[in-house]
């Protein structure tokens, strides 16, 4: 049980819907997942990863759940398992995807729909400020 997690500061963020704060708990959980992502900043590593993703992931002491989430490109799951979006974005870049594409997969809509939402002014904060507000 994390004490940092218990502090009022960290708890307050948990009221915000659809959002994971990259705090100490997440950072400790996702350390090896995120450090794996950092290796994708080199082209040789990206090629090696593409050639055999499962084998490449085995090189890092991640959990099996984390490896599976990477293989599935399940970004929300990766974030739940401690990934931070700036690190995870390097997987997206390796896949040649735009950031808007990644964002659309996390929000469960097509890239076109996501782009259209942004052009129309983006997601409104109304109804998205707190979990209680959503109920």
């Amino acid at each position: 049980m994390s004490n940092a997690k218990n502090s009022a500061y960290n708890d307050a963020f948990k009221d915000i819907p659809g959002t994971v704060i990259f705090d100490a708990t997440q950072s400790r959980l996702g350390f090896h997942l995120n450090q794996f992502c950092m290796t994708l900043m080199k082209d040789a590593a990206r090629q090696e990863f593409r050639a055999d993703e499962a084998a490449y992931l085995k090189k890092f002491p991640m959990t099996e759940e984390q490896r599976q989430a990477v293989l599935d490109r399940d970004y929300n799951r990766m974030i739940a398992l401690g990934g931070n979006i700036y690190f995870l974005a390097k997987i997206g870049a390796t896949d040649g995807l735009s950031f808007q594409k990644l964002a659309s997969t996390m929000t469960g809509v097509s890239e076109e729909e996501y782009r259209a939402m942004m052009v129309a002014g983006g997601r409104s904060p109304d109804g998205n400020r707190s979990k209680s507000e959503q109920q």
């Binding site: 994971v20 970004y75 964002a103 996390m106 942004m118 002014g121 983006g122 997601r123 904060p125």
Partner: peptide, 17 residues
Amino acid sequence: MSHQLQGPRAGLINKEF
């Protein structure tokens, strides 16, 4: 300024804020 890059709330914009 306002932006969220992660999770189901990605794309949040708050012009008033």
